[in-house]
Design a protein around this nucleic acid. Structure first.
Length: 457
RNA sequence: GUGGUUGUAGUUCAGUUGGUUAGAACGCCUGAUUGUGGUUCAGGAGGUCGCCGGUUCGAGUCCGGUCUUCCACCCCA
């Protein structure tokens, strides 16, 4: 009686090779986060549904994985509940859900730990999140986010530093073919006002955001449908035709948002962020001011940005922005935050497709010791112990086997050194060290061996 | 969630209008070499054709359902 093994839709196993590669990405990000003074936190995979629902819009709520209550989950329900439909029934049989992102749990964390936290609080968090989305390429139901957020300050230095960090991360990964799109929700408000779309702000943003994908014409058609007039579209068209360097663009945009306080503030914020970057000696070459950028998440209120690869079809690999009142719903008002989120899985797919992973991601001085028989095994164990005590990654082949098999094992596991401990070596106390890549072999005492391997790392 | 698409050996894929015993390449195992991996040569193992049901004398092939993959929409890392 056997069962066919399977995995839930949109989830994956990771082989050692893939985990080494994923860790390379994560460690690169982590190093940068720490260098900028961010401290790590972790939160549970499971949150109470009351924390999660209503934070991501109706669409978002639909994508939440809900966890069935333990035990007799029907004991709080009546036939009427069943008749009232699944949305109603869900509340009766499920109280917990898997986190959908890291930002909302972080907001909850800040609200709950407000007295412990040293503001302005800079934290990073690297954990999986879950979305009941329909999987596609670069779109999974379980995936990792690496978030860095600063809460408790309005300073635009944070925005600038987060953008600087992103560029430093991609530098560290030797990935250069990307674009940073930058805008501000307040600028969008100004544009919406200028286009007579203020009362349709969300629909306006969602539609505008699609311009890269479906083109200007179809966006205009959709905007007509939500009530914009021809003159509004002319205004929008003029705005979309703005070109030049960053300051040119902002200067040309300024007259369009004259009537909007928010719009003017938005332009200033983008300007100040760019100035901070300049003072930090961070290149703004890859930054493109894109006034059509909207970012879906409803909680952004200020600067927004996203990063996409330019040479291949891949969704956003990094995104973020400022949110002014996220902790408000948890009873802690007036705490402003700004964050950035790296999607490990998409970064992995990108580096993989572009062949940008380093070939050797494992320790340089890993040794496999051969095992021929009980006597040599016993001797080899002592050598093994010495090597490990010196901090060298070492393992003994766990059973006696043909040398061919053991060498092949080392080869496939990408172990750079094999130490042969046979009767001859045992007598002379000089062991044969084979370097797998070159095929060269030399006889060494334990002391020489340790010295050589330590020098390798 | 809506519409479409895919599934055959470990992997990538062939498989004729429905017709004997379902193939290839690569990978894997064994040997050539009982102390030398990667190359080469010889041999070998490995498939309930995603799953369940239906049509048929007969189904990998046709039909229905289901799961999975990928794509578009929606939304997003």
């Amino acid at each position: 009686m056997s069962q066919k093994p399977s995995l839930p839709k949109g989830t994956r196993d990771f082989t050692p090779k893939v985990v080494f590669q994923r860790n390379y990405i994560i460690q690169t990000i982590q190093k940068v986060f720490q260098k900028y003074g961010f401290d790590p936190i972790e939160t549970p995979a499971l949150e109470n549904l009351s924390v999660l629902t209503g934070k991501y819009g109706d669409e978002g709520d639909q994508l939440l994985f809900k966890v069935l209550n333990s035990g007799d989950f029907l004991n709080k329900t009546a036939p009427e509940d069943y008749a009232a439909g699944s949305a109603h029934l869900t509340g009766k049989i499920s109280e917990k859900g898997l986190r959908y992102d890291l930002t909302v749990p972080f907001a909850r964390f800040v609200a709950m730990n407000r007295n412990e936290i040293n503001f302005p609080f800079k934290r990073y968090q690297i954990q999986p999140v879950w979305r009941a989305d329909r999987p596609q390429k670069g779109r999974y139901r379980e995936f990792y986010q690496c978030d860095a957020d600063v809460v408790g300050t309005h300073s635009l230095l944070c925005e600038a530093e987060l953008i600087a960090m992103a560029q430093e991360v991609y530098d560290g990964l030797s990935f250069r073919d990307y674009q940073v799109s930058l805008s501000n929700r307040k600028i969008l408000e100004g544009i919406a006002l200028a286009c007579g779309a203020s009362d349709q702000f969300n629909a306006f943003c969602v539609t505008l955001d699609k311009i890269d994908k479906i083109g200007r014409e179809r966006v205009f058609e959709e905007l007509i449908k939500i009530g914009l007039k021809e003159s509004d579209l002319q205004t929008l068209s003029d705005i979309l035709h703005i070109e030049g360097d960053h300051h040119d663009k902002l200067n040309q945009l300024r007259p369009f948002v004259m009537d909007s306080t928010q719009g003017k503030v938005g332009i200033e914020e983008v300007e100040n962020t760019l100035n901070y970057l300049k003072s930090l000696d961070v290149s703004t070459e890859k930054i493109v001011l894109d006034f059509t950028l909207a970012r879906g998440l409803t909680y952004y209120t200020g600067i927004i940005y996203e990063i996409k690869p330019t040479t291949l079809q891949m969704g956003t690999i990094t995104a973020g922005g400022r949110y002014d009142n996220l902790t408000g719903v948890f009873g802690l008002p007036d705490v402003s935050g700004v964050g950035i989120s790296f999607g490990i899985d998409r970064i992995y797919d990108t580096l993989n497709e572009l062949n940008l992973f380093p070939k050797q991601l494992k320790v340089e001085n890993h040794v496999l010791i051969t095992n021929f028989d009980a006597t040599t095994e016993n001797h080899a164990l002592h050598v093994l112990s010495v090597l490990r005590n010196e901090g060298i990654t070492a393992e003994l082949y766990p059973e006696a086997a043909k040398l061919k098999k053991q060498l092949s094992f080392a080869h496939r596991k990408n172990i750079p050194y094999v130490l042969m401990v046979g009767t001859e070596e045992m007598k002379s106390k000089e062991y044969s060290l084979k370097h797998m890549e070159t095929g060269e072999q030399q006889r060494l005492s334990v002391d020489q061996l340790v010295k050589l391997l330590l020098a390798m790392n």
